[in-house]
């Protein structure tokens, strides 16, 4: 069976137009590939660079990994007679984890609570009012947080609670406010995915608003809340400037929340200007950077894992 040739002119192919479209398609395709390539290149080079620098502490300078991680003495300028410089960073790792977890512990209930207020209690004016507030909190530069903490919080702690004021506690409070918007906005997004039909189903069974929120919406949103808190912790763990301004930057192991301390990030920012690239002291800072990189990788994988499990459940 033979079919007639195309007769309608508007259906016929136009060779020059086809060629142009094909060229344009190829161009667009290459553009997207290029973008992806640049991102991958950036990520891979950062990883390679940080790894090679960070590991040279142990492979080139022969510092013992365990001494490095568990040591609590940091003295890069110790004389040769006293045994040479020591680089024990446990106090900084400890400081980082303490301020991160405590900041998350403060910010999580407040962030989730305000997210519930914005989506369930007062979805109209609550969100209209609080959404810009949350966005504002995100937009404030960390130096402003640090400066405010330094000017208001540090003297307040010194006068009313005790100690020098420069303390882990100051770092915790500043960080908890900084990660509040992250936790709030991700929690809001999670709560918004609970469909109105589910809520209607609960009300139709005679559930009160409290029962609906507590037994249904909160439970359904739990994986999302965990994700929100992990993202907040990732931000707290990586924040350098604001923390460095209020935490006191003591190299000693803090024994209470009112003691000054250091975090991994604050040590890097405090010391990076004073070291010569290639020296042991500089390499040690890179090792600290490597720890940060590994931790952020852990955070991201944790979020992925929870996201996957959440999908499997639903």
């Amino acid at each position: 069976m033979s079919l007639p040739a195309t007769r309608s002119p508007e259906l016929k192919t136009n060779p020059s137009h086809m060629k142009f479209e094909k060229l344009r398609g190829t161009f667009g395709y290459s553009l997207t590939i290029l973008s992806v390539f640049i991102i991958l290149l950036a990520v891979i080079s950062i990883y390679i660079f940080v790894f090679s620098k960070g590991l040279s502490t142990f492979f080139v300078d022969k510092l013992h990994l365990w001494d490095f991680l568990s040591g609590t003495e940091w003295n890069p300028t110790r004389s040769e007679e006293a045994g040479g410089p020591v680089f024990g960073v446990f106090a900084f790792i400890y400081g980082s984890f303490v301020v991160t977890f405590l900041a998350a512990a403060i910010a999580a209930p407040i962030g989730i609570g305000s997210a519930i207020f914005m989506t369930e209690i007062a979805p109209k004016w609550g969100r209209k009012l609080l959404q810009p507030v949350v966005e504002l909190l995100v937009g404030i530069p960390s130096v402003v947080y640090g400066f405010t903490g330094l000017t208001l919080l540090v003297p307040f702690i010194r006068e009313h609670i005790g100690g020098l004021g420069f303390s882990l506690l100051a770092g915790v409070i500043v960080l908890s406010i900084m990660i509040l918007p992250t936790i709030t906005s991700i929690s809001v997004d999670t709560l918004l995915t609970v469909s109105p039909e589910i809520k209607a189903g609960s009300y139709a069974l005679g559930a009160t608003r409290w029962q609906t929120i507590w037994r249904l919406i909160m439970r359904a949103s739990a994986p999302g809340f965990v994700t929100a808190v992990i993202f907040g912790m990732a931000r707290a763990f990586g924040e350098a400037l604001a923390v460095q301004m209020v935490i006191g930057n003591s190299k000693r192991m803090p024994t209470s929340l009112l003691d000054p301390g250091s975090t991994i990030t604050s040590v890097i920012t405090m010391n990076m200007g004073n070291t010569v690239p290639g020296t042991l002291e500089n390499n040690v800072l890179w090792s600290l950077a490597l720890i940060l990189l590994l931790m952020s990788t852990v955070f991201i994988f944790a979020v992925r894992l929870i996201g996957q499990r959440g999908r499997l459940m639903s």
């Binding site: 469909s195 039909e197 589910i198 209607a200 189903g201 609960s202 139709a204 249904l216 439970r219 359904a220 459940m313 639903s314």
Partner: peptide
């Protein structure tokens, strides 16, 4: 009971 099945998660 509603139009679209709305089981809880």
């Amino acid at each position: 009971v509603f139009q679209r099945p709305n089981p809880f998660n």
